[in-house]
Write a protein that binds this DNA or RNA. Structure first.
Lengths: 208, 208
DNA sequence: TCATGTGAAGACATTCACAGCA
DNA sequence: TGCTGTGAATGTCTTCACATGA
């Protein structure tokens, strides 16, 4: 199973979600052009993407929904449950917990961290908050590979380094800075300021 | 000024931010390879990107920082201040306000909206909250082109349609659904669930 | 000499279009 | 017939490599 493009993975995740949430359950099978309509991609794109997960449909029945969901799951998910660490339990951290927790059976925010002592030992959405000084120990102990950074920009680089030091291999970074980390760590930036600037640009240009 | 690729715009926004926040001010000029080091892109990429904004450096002095920032601003920003509407004043909405407000001189979250009456007329980070029933009227009145959706998934499509109906041309969507909207509306999805799933995949694979 | 600006090449991603199959 | 799976073509983005200029 070679390297797969990021964009392909994003679409595979989207296919699974749409199959899980909005497939009507009346029909047991689905065609690529139906998936195309649901997702907004082309049917050729979808067939191409599905090649990588090694599940084949039939020209007559298309794809069997249940099997397709299963194959997507085997491709996307770990075999065992993966833990995720959340750093920063402010408004953003709490929002992430409430959007995320319980949505993916194979993923769980297993620990959160904050600097403020009054938050420590609180349990929010089934996730206990630890003091940030215990970061390395706890993620190591819980064998956590994924971290979410939801702290202010000026603390983010420090937090990132501590995450990596504790054994983290992938980071979702909400702080509006470019993290400097070793190349083997996968970083996904979710910079809100940039998102708004970008959309503002295209919104404006769409009127010209 | 033709169409510009999304990725190029993202990098231009990043260049400006890095120049504003971490340029040392000692030197008045900067070379593409220095920008490359700051951003992690190649110098050729940077020179190529800067071609589109119509600002030229010199082989001897590189780029003059102040002029470069100015040119980037003229390219990225509107001439007048643009207003942004935020829908949903839960944890996520408040996080967006505190991350965003005051960071970009030419952009301001000018109104927020919520369903819950107790939040209406609150002022958070200089932004007044209105009842969601007034959405179309107020964004039309304030001539707002950009909307941010920070409501639960099941309300997002409805909110999106009302935004578009009120004249919005670009949306930052934090809800984990695929919005169905007319193609002239630019949509940027910031689905946190997908971000975590994706990073979890690559974090895991990086160990194999 | 050294860095810019850019044509050309290369890498990557998407779409076309059709053989093959039930 | 109407779909899948996929080679080939196209389109888009990034990097190479060098002419140019101070």
């Amino acid at each position: 199973m070679g390297k797969i493009p990021v964009k392909t993975l994003e679409r595979l995740i989207l296919y699974r979600r749409l199959l899980l949430t909005q497939h009507d359950g009346k029909s047991t099978n689905i065609f690529s052009h139906q998936l195309a309509k649901m997702t907004g991609f082309t049917s050729a794109q979808i067939r191409r993407d599905l090649m990588v997960i090694g599940y084949s449909g039939s020209p007559v029945r298309g794809y069997i929904v249940e099997e397709l969901i299963k194959s997507l799951g085997e491709f996307i998910d770990a075999t065992q449950k993966q833990g995720v660490a959340l750093v920063g339990l402010g408004h953003l951290g709490r929002a992430i917990l409430s959007y995320f927790q319980g949505r993916r059976p194979k993923l769980e925010i297993a620990a959160s961290f904050d600097r403020q002592c009054q938050k420590v030992d609180q349990v929010v959405m089934g996730c206990r908050c630890y003091h940030i000084d215990d970061l390395e120990n706890i993620i190591h102990e819980k064998n956590i590979l994924v971290g979410i950074i939801a702290v202010p920009a000026d603390e983010a680089q420090d937090v990132a380094e501590r995450l990596v030091h504790g054994g983290i291999r992938g980071i979702v970074n909400f702080a509006p800075i470019k993290l400097k980390l070793p190349p083997e760590v996968y970083v996904e930036n979710r910079d809100m300021i940039m998102a708004v600037e970008k959309v503002a640009y295209f919104a404006r240009k769409s009127l010209e």
